[in-house]
């Protein structure tokens, strides 16, 4: 009860501050829309897709997972600013739940990601993308879990390194192979065997496959529940680890 209340308080505050800065929303939507309009048309030819809608069925899931990963991974920067302003230390002298300090923030990131995802999905509908609503919600669940994990990890790492200068290269180094080995931009089905072998070790590759299956209306595909399970386990682990950093972090 106290925990839920604490989480809500932190979430509310963070969300309010986010809304106060509409530039963010613009940037967060503008970029993916550019991908949708300027990159996706190339795909129809590259993927040998019969129609533009078929190309979108492959590309949009990848784009959404990409947003979830990056949206989360770079949240740590905001936390370092809060750390420097003394806001975290001020929270930590109160009896507020440490897990709530993390979860309130990560939930804000999840909500803003889902908002982005909805806008992009709606746009894709204009290009004749069609997805069954139930499957779409499952796909959003996957996205939410990804954002929860990446933002929690980003917060945890931020509390450990305590400086933007260390966080930026670290996150970029992690993000790049994760991105390349997940088949986000192009399906890994096109990749040579050895590359697929490595990609099997990348949890996001499972997530992308799962979301693509959902967009294709293929609920019976094992990748759906496998992806969800892998990401859910990782999200819980990430949250537990990051909350521990909140409990013992120093300035």
């Amino acid at each position: 009860m106290k925990f839920a209340r604490d989480t809500w308080l932190i979430f509310q505050r963070q969300f309010q501050l986010l809304l106060r800065n509409p530039v963010w929303l613009f940037v967060g939507v503008f970029q993916p829309v550019m991908y949708l309009l300027l990159f996706a048309p190339l795909l129809k030819a590259a993927l040998n897709a019969p129609t533009q809608a078929a190309a979108y069925k492959i590309f949009v899931p990848g784009l959404l997972v990409l947003l979830a990963i990056f949206g989360g991974l770079f949240q740590g920067f905001g936390l370092i600013a809060e750390l420097r302003a003394g806001v975290i230390e001020r929270s930590r002298v109160t009896p507020v739940s440490r897990l709530a300090l993390l979860l309130g923030r990560s939930l804000r990131d999840v909500v803003s990601l889902i908002a982005q995802a909805i806008i992009i999905t709606l746009l894709a509908l204009l290009f004749d993308l069609r997805v069954f609503i139930g499957y779409l919600l499952l796909a959003y669940l996957m996205l939410a879990l990804i954002a929860l994990m990446t933002s929690a990890v980003s917060y945890g790492v931020a509390l450990k390194v305590k400086s933007e200068d260390a966080l930026a290269p670290l996150m970029n180094t992690v993000a790049q192979p994760v991105l390349l080995l997940s088949g986000i931009l192009l399906p890994l089905a096109l990749a040579p065997g050895w590359l697929q072998g490595i990609a099997n070790w990348n949890p996001f590759s499972w997530a992308v496959d799962g979301v693509r299956a959902l967009f294709a209306g293929d609920l019976s595909n094992d990748k759906v529940w496998q992806g969800l399970t892998i990401i859910a386990v990782l999200a819980v682990a990430g949250v537990v680890w990051a909350a521990r950093q909140f409990a013992r972090s120093v300035r």
């Binding site: 308080l9 505050r13 501050l17 800065n21 302003a85 003394g86 230390e89 001020r90 109160t94 009896p95």
Partner: peptide
């Protein structure tokens, strides 16, 4: 704390209300 503890983008009232609620 020595180095301050308020957030630039919040108002004093918001900070006070939130802090009280955290207690």
């Amino acid at each position: 704390a020595q180095g301050g503890s308020t957030w630039d983008e919040s108002t004093a009232r918001e900070e006070l209300v939130l802090h009280a609620r955290l207690y």
